[in-house]
Computed example of a mutant assay.
Amino acid sequence: MDVFFEPQEGSPFCIQIGFHDTVLEIKEKIEKHQGIPVYRQTIVFNDEALDDELDVEGCNIINRSCIRLIVAPEPPPSTKIELCIGTPPSKMRLPIEVGVRDPVKSLREVVWSLEDVPLERVKLYANGTELEDDCRICDYELQDNSSVDVHIKPLKFTVMVLPWKANLKVAVEVKQSDKVKVLRKELEKLQPILKFDLPSEGYFFIHNQSGMDEDKSFKWHGVEMGDTIEIFRGMISR
């Protein structure tokens, strides 16, 4: 379908988009045809700024719709600011100098080098919003001494669960911070596929010959990668 864009400055233009295109994909087409970088674009339809993850159908855009295009000014290329990076677990603030046109990914890579964890586990937040790799620092209106919080996504690991009176072990992926009771939900998902039995009259978990408190985390119980957790029929009396 063809839609028309009306920029604040310059002449209107028409671009062909697909029915299932996302707003981000529309911005990428505008960048390709008009040379306006994605990070400078805000698309407004029916007086509402559209989020990148929405699609054409969800926005009720139809053939020959007219859409406003707001183009943010390009910041000076040499502008530098200093951000205060809050690093876990102490949340100590570290000053890091960045260019306002630098991509968020470059800042995330700096933080990754400080934290010594896999890059995909590092998430950055400012004013409650996650900073996305394909955006630039200037997209989030960060200024000198703005605070950026670092979140480290919990590491997942695999535990082996031995069902009641079974010869097979079931591999279940969990986080160390998860409470043990998440095992019940995961086992219920796997039971129809792997065809193992879960005692209908109730059951509890054993790790290293000790009953597990399901309201405590795997980390609290000292569970590590590859450990075996056994299922026993009955209930633990407190």
Rank of each mutant, 00 (worst) to 15 (best):
W220H: 01
S78Q: 11
R108F: 13
V3A: 03
L142T: 03
D227H: 10
D139K: 04
G10W: 01
S147C: 10
S147W: 11
T79M: 14
D116I: 13
L94H: 14
V159S: 01
K179T: 07
F157W: 02
Y125G: 02
G222H: 06
G99Q: 03
V172E: 06
I36K: 10
V71G: 03
L194D: 11
E173Q: 05
Q143R: 02
H151Y: 13
L83A: 13
E31W: 07
K169M: 14
K91M: 15
W112C: 15
F157L: 08
N63Q: 07
E186F: 05
S200N: 12
G10E: 12
V100M: 06
I206A: 04
L107T: 07
V71L: 04
E120H: 14
S237E: 06
R238F: 03
I70V: 10
E109G: 14
N63D: 06
V56A: 05
E120F: 01
V3H: 04
E214F: 02
L69K: 10
E186T: 01
C138A: 02
P75A: 14
E9I: 13
S11E: 11
N145T: 09
V100E: 15
P199H: 11
G35E: 12
V223E: 05
E132D: 08
D133W: 05
S90P: 12
F232S: 03
E48I: 06
K29Y: 09
N127S: 01
C135D: 14
E115C: 15
K32V: 07
S78N: 08
P76Y: 02
G128Q: 09
I67M: 08
A126W: 11
L131I: 06
D144L: 15
F232M: 11
V100P: 11
E120W: 14
S210T: 07
S106G: 08
D21N: 04
M212R: 10
E6K: 03
W164C: 14
V148S: 09
E230W: 01
W220C: 00
Q8G: 15
C135Y: 09
F232D: 00
L50Q: 02
K153Q: 13
K195I: 09
F204I: 01
A171N: 14
C14L: 11
C14R: 12
R121L: 08
P12Q: 12
V172Y: 09
K219R: 06
E141I: 06
L83N: 13
Q16H: 09
L50W: 06
D21R: 00
L162T: 11
C66N: 07
E201H: 00
T79D: 09
P199L: 08
Y140T: 13
I231G: 03
P118T: 13
R184K: 11
K179I: 09
V170K: 08
D47S: 12
D55W: 04
C14A: 06
E141G: 13
P199K: 05
F45T: 00
F19R: 01
K219S: 14
E214W: 00
V150F: 05
N63E: 02
P37Y: 00
L69T: 01
I193Q: 15
S237W: 02
T42I: 07
D133E: 00
Q176L: 12
K105S: 13
L168Q: 08
E31F: 05
